[in-house]
Amino acid sequence: MLTLETIRDRILEAVPDAGVEIISNPGPSGQDSLLVSSGHGLAIALFLRDDPELRFDYCSNVTGVDWLDKTVKEKVIVREDDEDVETQVERVVPGYLEVVYHLYSISKKHGPVVLRLRTADRNEGVELPSLTPVWKSAEFQEREVLDLYGIRFTGHPDPTRLLMWENFEGHPMRKDYCAPDDDEPGDPITARERKEEAS
């Protein structure tokens, strides 16, 4: 009987100062996930694959998720003239990109374990270790994440775009990506809608 808690403990046993955190899933599917610190990503992946009891030999799905900056309103108690005053403060939680791995075990027939790796931010620190050396199935999918989300994978054998062409600019799956206006000029419905919008 393996639960996510025991998996976490086993990981911490094998890879001592790794940061592993359980992210609970509020939905009815109950698929919780393990958030793994990016520095130890490769070691943890190797452990999950090769540990004889866990044996997650099959990395089924690799994908990216884009979490934008969030503005959180919180109540903060400020001390003012020897009196505690509650004021509302807006705080910006910086966004990040996330790579999600769905692992199964074919030899043990269990799974899925959801593994998450997060980047530092959405602009400069978008580097994550590639898990392609551990599971070859991640090769194309990590390239796709690189292409559509712009995460740089260190250690990937062929870090090029997968679906878009080489000179394409931007990463279309990011939430703040703006597609170029490619409406055909002769289309009467578009023209009418534009007119309505303008009026």
């Binding site: 899933n25 509020p26 939905g27 009815p28 599917s29 698929q31 089924s60 799905n61 994908t63 998720v65 999600v100 769905h102 899925p112 959801v114």
Partner: peptide, 24 residues
């Protein structure tokens, strides 16, 4: 409007494992 959460569902399609990963 599904409740907040995520799910990965997969089936054996004729081609292989077809899965959909959704976050709501």
């Amino acid at each position: 409007r599904p409740p907040e959460g995520e799910a990965y569902g997969r089936i054996e399609s004729p081609k292989g494992e077809l899965g959909f990963y959704l976050i709501s």
